Simulated assay, not measured.
Amino acid sequence: MSEPRIWAVLPAAGVGRRMGGPLPKQYLPLAGRPVIARTLDRLLALPAVHGAVVALSPEDNHWDALGYRHRKPVHRVPGGAERSDSVQSVLHWLAEQGGTRDYALVHDAVRPCVGMAELERLIDRARDERGGLLAFPVRDTLKRDDGDGHVARTVDREGLWHALTPQLFPVMALREALAKAGEAGLTITDDASAMEAVGGRPRLIPGEATNIKITRPADLALAEAILVAQGGTGA
């Protein structure tokens, strides 16, 4: 029997309204290449990753125009209205392709600065524990508002972590967790929260603060500066 494979899974069916431009944020140029292309390059450069599956809106006509190619397989599947719907679509496709023993490395398409060292750390540690996620401890003081724009109280940051992506889980375990969360009407903000909802305890793997998510125009300049510092702006 062949070894379980690891598939990079990119839910990218969103339109990124906060960027305010004509293009979805995953297609915006970043140091001369679209954001999603740089993200895929990072993930597919990892020897442990077999290939990628990208979930896109059925109306997305930017992907074909991008013409992304890689020596590893890259597949497109229809995305859904919510991020979890897109992930489920990919997991269903992988199961149909015989990937029931495989792992899904789910990553935001707009996190192009993820580092190779943190990717390797995640795979090495999370695969042994049946799942985990990149994260880093909260360092700033946290405030909870009172609903009227004033501070209600200061929140104890002890034991709190910023959740990042990628997050690595077995395909079938994550598929079942997302399905059960959906049936229960739970709000799922990331894949780890779906696993938590069914009793899982995903491993927190130390990630880097440079693994930023591009959501606003200013983030593009910051991401480019990070890529330059990492030496990762080559075509």
Rank of each mutant, 00 (worst) to 15 (best):
Gly159Gln: 09
Ala117Pro: 00
Val138Met: 10
Pro112Asn: 05
Val87Lys: 05
Thr210Ser: 08
Glu129Tyr: 10
His107Gln: 12
Met195Ile: 14
Lys213Trp: 05
Trp93Tyr: 10
Leu227Tyr: 05
Asp102Asn: 08
Leu142Arg: 04
Ala163Leu: 13
Glu129Gln: 11
Ser2Trp: 13
Ala13Ile: 04
Thr39Pro: 03
Pro137Leu: 08
Asp140Cys: 10
Ala95Asn: 09
Asp41Val: 08
Ile36Glu: 03
Pro22Glu: 14
Pro58Asn: 02
Met172Ser: 03
Leu94Thr: 02
Gly67Met: 03
Pro24Lys: 08
His150Asn: 12
Leu133Cys: 08
Gln167Tyr: 06
Met1Trp: 15
Glu176His: 13
Ala117Gly: 02
Glu176Trp: 15
Pro112Phe: 04
Leu43Ile: 14
Val77Pro: 01
Leu186Trp: 03
Cys113Val: 10
Arg216Thr: 08
Pro217Met: 06
Leu178Cys: 08
Leu204His: 09
Met116Lys: 13
Ala181Glu: 14
Ala209Gln: 11
Ile212Asp: 02
Leu40Gln: 08
Arg139Glu: 03
Ala177Gln: 13
Trp93Cys: 00
Leu94Met: 09
Glu158Asp: 12
Leu133Asn: 06
Ile123Glu: 00
Tyr27Cys: 10
Ala95Val: 09
Arg201Ser: 01
Ala135Val: 07
Gly14Trp: 08
Gly149Tyr: 07
Glu183Cys: 06
Glu129Ala: 07
Asp60His: 01
Glu96Leu: 12
Gly21Arg: 15
Tyr68Ile: 02
Gly115Asp: 07
His162Glu: 10
Pro170Asn: 11
Lys143Ile: 10
Arg17Leu: 15
Pro202Ser: 07
Val54Gln: 03
Ala8Ile: 13
Pro47Glu: 05
Thr189Phe: 14
Glu176Thr: 11
Gly149Val: 06
Thr154Ile: 15
Ser2Leu: 15
Asp145Trp: 15
Glu3Asp: 15
Met172Cys: 05
Trp7Gly: 03
Glu118Ala: 01
Pro29Lys: 15
Leu122Ala: 02
Arg33Ile: 05
His107Arg: 10
Gly21Pro: 12
Gly131Asn: 09
Gly182Lys: 04
Trp93Met: 02
Thr210Gln: 05
Glu224Cys: 03
Trp161Glu: 07
Gln167Pro: 01
Gly131Gln: 10
Arg69Ile: 00
Pro166Ile: 11
Val171Asn: 06
Asp145Ser: 07
Arg33Trp: 12
Met195Pro: 04
Val87Leu: 06
Ala95Gly: 06
Glu183Ile: 14
Val54His: 02
Ser2Ala: 14
Gly182Gln: 04
Pro78Ile: 01
Ala13Pro: 10
Arg33His: 12
Lys180Leu: 09
Gly207Asn: 05
Arg5Leu: 15
Gly182Pro: 01
Ala194Leu: 12
Leu204Cys: 06
